[in-house]
Design a protein around this nucleic acid. Structure first.
Lengths: 158, 158
DNA sequence: TTTTTTGCAAAACCTTTGCAGTTGG
DNA sequence: CCAACTGCAAAGGTTTTGCAAAAAA
C-alpha cells in the first residue's frame, strides 16, 4: 500500500501563472498540457479526466484521455493539481489555485460541498480520540447526505 | 446518483443460520451461494470478491467471480452482507453477523481498524455542525493513518 | 417441470502503459 | 537536435451483463 508523497500546493489563479509555474520547473508547455490547465481553470470546480478530454462537453478543444491522465499526474506532482475520489465514479481533479478546500460528497444529489480544511480539524480530532487514527479527507472525502438531501430523506421517512 | 435502499441487517453467526435465512426468503440455496457464505464466515473479516472466488487462497473451493458478485449483491439485498470501499482497490464484503462495525482504513499498512458505530457518533456530530451534512461511513469509511503508521510517519519526518 | 441460478465469455468502466512518431526549447 | 511529450492502441483491474446450459424446488 502506498501513500502519495507530500506535495506542497502551488497556488496559481490564472493561465499565465499556471504556464509560468510549468515553465519554471523545466517541463515543456505543450498543447495538451495547456488544455488540461485551461479546462481546470475554466471549470473552477473538481472535474473528471474525461470532462477534460471531452473539452468540458465541447466548450473547449478535446484531447487524448491518456495524455490527460499523464498530465494530471505530472501537474499533481508539481503541486498545481489535486485529485480525490468522491464515492463511486471517476476521480476528480481540481486546481490548487482555487484555495485550500476539502469536500463533502453527497451521494444522493452528487453535490461536492466545499469546506475549509480547518473546519474539519474538529472532525479529525474526534477520530483521533478514538484510537490515535489520523484521518485524512483530502484524498478520500467524507461521503453522506448534504443538508438538503438529508432533510428530504427525513421527510420521506415520516 | 443512487443510494442503496435501507436494508435492515440480518445477523447470522453460523452457516446453518445463514442457510436458513436464505431459504426463508424463497431464494435457492445453491452451491455457489453456499460457497460465498462459507468464505465470508471463515474469513471473519472484510474480504474482496476475488478472495471469495479464489476460495480464500485455496483453503476453500473456488468459484466463478461473476456468480460471486451476483451472490454478494443478492445477499446484500437480504441484509446478510455489507460491502464498502476502503480507499483504492476492490470493494470489501463482510457478514453482518460479526456485529455492527464500522472501519477506519489505514492507507499505509492496509489495516482495517474496526470500531463500534456508536464511537463514530461524535465524528458525525462534528461534521453535522459544519453545515448539516449527514456523514455516513458505512459505505465509504474514513481513510488515513492508523496510530502505528502515524507515529512511524512522525518519526520519519523528524 | 419450471424458474432460478450458474459458468463462461464478453463488455463496461476507469486508468495505466508501450511504443513509434512529433514537438518544444 | 534530442529529450520530453503526444496520440493511439492495447492492456490492467474491478465489476456487470448476455445467454445457453444446469440445477433447485
Amino acid at each position: 500500500m502506498t501513500v502519495s508523497p507530500d506535495r506542497k500546493p502551488v497556488v496559481v489563479t490564472d493561465l499565465d501563472e499556471a504556464f509560468a509555474a510549468v515553465r519554471a520547473t523545466g517541463l515543456r508547455l505543450t498543447a495538451a498540457r495547456r488544455l488540461v490547465l485551461e479546462a481546470l481553470l475554466a471549470a473552477r470546480a473538481p472535474i473528471s479526466a474525461e470532462d477534460i478530454a471531452d473539452g468540458l462537453g465541447g466548450r473547449m478543444t478535446q484531447s487524448d484521455i491518456a495524455s490527460v491522465y499523464r498530465n494530471l499526474e505530472t501537474l499533481g506532482e508539481l503541486g498545481l493539481v489535486r485529485h480525490f475520489h468522491a464515492g463511486h465514479g471517476p476521480g476528480r481533479y481540481v486546481l490548487e489555485g482555487f484555495g485550500d478546500r476539502e469536500y463533502l460528497a453527497c451521494e444522493s444529489c452528487g453535490l461536492l460541498e466545499s469546506v475549509e480544511p480547518a473546519a474539519l480539524e474538529t472532525v479529525r480530532d474526534a477520530v483521533r480520540d478514538l484510537s490515535g487514527f489520523e484521518a485524512s479527507f483530502s484524498h478520500f472525502p467524507i461521503v453522506g447526505l448534504c443538508a438538503r438531501c438529508a432533510k428530504k430523506r427525513a421527510r420521506a421517512a415520516r
